[in-house]
Design a protein around this nucleic acid. Structure first.
Lengths: 161, 161
DNA sequence: CTCGGTATCGCAACATGTTGCATCTGCAGT
DNA sequence: ACTGCAGATGCAACATGTTGCGATACCGAG
């Protein structure tokens, strides 16, 4: 029974995650609504990071009647489901990561506003996580982490000035 | 000429820092205004962390005509002067540190909402700073750093559940 | 297929900052 | 003391979320 009547192209790993969401909601006594469908549609076409405001915009593109508070509340629900994760960027704004993505932290340069990812498997990150856990009993949420500072390029320039 | 005509008690280390602010502003072509005097007065009586909103409230207590945007703009100026530093708490809200305080990062538990300080001289922090600098050429702003995660106590409880 | 409970929605008000602009004022120079 | 002007202020509008509440509609049971 493979590909029986499947319309457009079928990307198993990706689509299966989104297809299961309605039932995963109902299994928790939650509901599958048109508004949630819109947001999930937007998320399924999103790669990497997005701000809350960006998601609201993209939902409005699909449905001009989109209400921001509904989007934010749905994002909370989806975070409980493990579909997205949020962190706060260097400016304090919300930033959402669509899963599955490799867990990663961010480096943000306050001089040039540039941003880099730091994989959770980066030796530096891994060492810090273990050190904080052993030294303080504290388990860090790596993906929630943004390190603010000055990047190599900007540091070089500052020396000149 | 010691304590000549000094009214109330004189706390050299503390008061001198605040007393120098007007001239430090003028030296940069900036101005010393009543609104700034109010904010500096509030800051001089503040210990540790405060949110922006809290500072606005305290200024309003001294002068009901206080305008929030003026407070925020003055905080920017004072940050340039090195009088305060800001970071973003786990919820993304602004958090100001009144100097001089030892540089420190924060641990924030997303389960119990507890918060702990982590000194810049903490071996874990120091090691991470050096590692990121050597590994990525990136200089971390330690005081801007908030690590979100789960504290030891809450981790113990989660195992039970 | 209808019904009822309750999760969700839409909306309005609020919280916390940020920004543009016309007006005002601190203060350096005379 | 007076004056000019760049730096500050006040105000209003906006950006990004959050929250309370009454109305709506999803969906499991009968």
């Amino acid at each position: 029974m493979r590909a029986t009547g499947s319309p457009s192209e079928w990307r198993p790993e990706v689509d299966r995650q989104w297809a299961g969401i309605p039932d995963r909601l109902r299994a928790r006594g939650l509901r599958w609504t048109p508004q949630r469908r819109i947001l999930v549609e937007v998320l399924s076409g999103t790669d990497g990071h997005v701000t809350g405001a960006e998601l609201v915009e993209r939902c409005k593109a699909l449905d001009p009647d989109t209400i921001p508070s509904t989007v934010y509340r749905t994002l909370d629900v989806l975070e409980d489901l493990g579909v997205v994760r949020h962190s706060h960027g260097a400016d304090g704004r919300e930033e959402f990561h669509v899963l599955p993505v490799e867990e990663h932290a961010h480096l943000y340069c306050r001089v040039c506003s540039g941003s880099w990812e730091l994989g959770a498997d980066d030796p530096v990150v891994a060492a810090a996580v273990v050190a904080v856990r052993d030294g303080h009993g504290f388990a860090i949420d790596v993906p929630h982490l943004t390190l603010t500072g000055v990047c190599a390029a900007c540091r070089a320039k500052e020396v000149d000035a």
